[in-house]
Computed example of a mutant assay.
Amino acid sequence: MNHVLSALAKHASWLPETLIRAVFSFAADAAWLLHIAGVRQLERNLRQVLQHRDGQVDRRTLRRSSRKAMHSYFMYFAEALTVGARSEQELLARIRGEGEGFASIQELCVESSAPIAMGHQGNWDYAGFWANTAIAPVTTVAERLKNEELLKVFVSIREELGMTILLTGEHGLIGQLEERLDEAHVIVPLLADRDLSRHGVFVNAFGSLMRVARGPATIALETGRPLYVFNMHREALDAAGRRVAGIKHGYVCTISGPIDPHPYEDMPKEEAITALSQAWVDIWSAKIEDHPEDWHMLQPVFIEDLDLARMHGVPENIDSISRTSAGPSGRM
């Protein structure tokens, strides 16, 4: 499969986009119908979101939502792997920006820079291309994949779209990002909605607890830069938009914030990082509830699905909550 994906990215212009989308749409339906492990986990995550939003969710609603989510997820791969065959005009017709923070970050980044917290939503390759044009050049971090060939493909795609890519595990990664933020006209968006390492921060979200990356809060606090929040969802394009974009659906990039880090500076460091992380998660999670089908989280993220006994650096108060929730049997 990795070889197929790599070949598709390298030769995207050889095949009609409608055919590629049809194949990925079929694959999404197949995975959904087979109810594979990733789909089951996706549904557990969606249930948490929908129950928090609506108070309850029946199986039919959950299955319908998970099918939409799988189509959104697979379309991301179809788009990301074939973005090299799209013209700049097509891409710009597929993406637009909005939100109370949009004008603010545009104005700020004329002469300054800003970090952005974001989650696994929509198509972050399209988002990076759009942000380069609409806001400022992007420097971001990509996960270091086990498959080197596929890693090179994704890094190459993002670099061709104008992004500067650093990899997880690089020495002094936070320092490199902070150096970039010292420059004018730069943004640093970071995928931060899941981090199960000892460095992750537990926050409240959707009536539960989840562990997010500390990077956005840490960078905002150490640089004094305002922290923005990014959400992304699909929308149907109008007739004029479809003609230029060449497809029926595009994306909305919503910028929220800014969150001023200065009120948190007098707190102890870990307390400040947790509080600022909670602040951006509160904003981000509210937008997730508006479009849960575009949140591509097929991995365990909520405390109910985590084995805290195998995790490092779990605060004592979180461990106590987990054990209380588990009850006498020791299982949640």
Rank of each mutant, 00 (worst) to 15 (best):
N2D: 05
S6C: 15
K10M: 05
A12I: 12
A28Y: 01
W32D: 07
L33Y: 14
L42D: 06
R47L: 08
V57S: 14
R59K: 09
R60Q: 13
L62K: 10
R67S: 07
Y73D: 06
F74V: 02
A80Q: 02
L81T: 01
A85S: 15
Q89K: 00
L91A: 02
R96I: 05
E98Y: 09
E100N: 12
G101C: 12
Q106P: 02
E107Q: 15
E111H: 12
A117V: 10
G119M: 12
A127P: 01
G128M: 02
G128P: 03
F129D: 01
T133F: 00
V141K: 14
K146W: 02
S156C: 02
R158M: 03
E160W: 06
E160C: 04
L173K: 00
L177A: 00
L181W: 06
A184D: 00
I187F: 14
A192H: 08
H199I: 04
V203G: 03
A205F: 09
R211F: 09
P216F: 11
G224N: 09
N231A: 13
N231H: 15
A239D: 05
V244Y: 01
V252N: 09
C253H: 14
I259L: 15
A272I: 01
T274F: 04
L276V: 13
S277H: 06
S285T: 15
K287F: 14
K287C: 10
E289S: 08
D290P: 11
L298H: 10
L306D: 14
G313K: 13
N317T: 12
I318P: 07
I318R: 09
D319Y: 00
G330Q: 06
